[in-house]
């Protein structure tokens, strides 16, 4: 079990975005950068160095895994997939964020009602 899942630690926003991008379909590096930018509506644009630092960390924590390798223009292109631990960590993070959003909305509604 990964550290993030077992300890209930919050994922960073880039990590959450990368895990979200991998739900249901393996992706390679560039596709992940593009997906993260799309999911965040342009707010988060990962540099390649940042992405691979993140992939290395998520991979060592068991949240993602290598799906397959392909040759592309003479270079190795790796595809990554979400693991069961990764899906569990993402689910926990989604619930945490949803709870936070509900709490914020409730307080705003209460403040407006006063």
């Amino acid at each position: 079990m990964s550290a993030d899942v077992s300890s209930g630690m919050a994922l960073t926003e880039p990590a959450t975005l990368v895990l979200t991008a991998l739900v249901g379909q393996p992706h390679h590096g560039y596709a992940l950068i593009a997906q993260v930018e799309e999911l965040s509506e342009g707010r988060t644009r990962l540099s390649v160095g940042t992405l691979y630092g993140l992939l290395d960390r998520l991979s060592s924590e068991g949240l993602i895994a290598l799906d397959r390798e392909e040759r592309h223009a003479g270079r190795t292109r790796r595809y990554y997939r979400l693991t069961d631990d990764g899906a569990a960590a993402l689910d926990a993070e989604a619930q945490r964020l949803a709870h936070l959003a509900r709490a914020a909305s409730a307080r705003l509604r209460a403040a407006r009602a006063v």
């Binding site: 390679h28 590096g29 560039y30 160095g49 691979y52 223009a73 270079r75």
Partner: peptide, 19 residues
């Protein structure tokens, strides 16, 4: 580290720039 990731990183960067 470079041996493990270099090709992949180069591929991603070229795709980012060309896209």
């Amino acid at each position: 580290y470079r041996q493990r990731w270099e090709d992949d990183m180069v591929d991603a960067l070229l795709e980012v720039e060309q896209s």
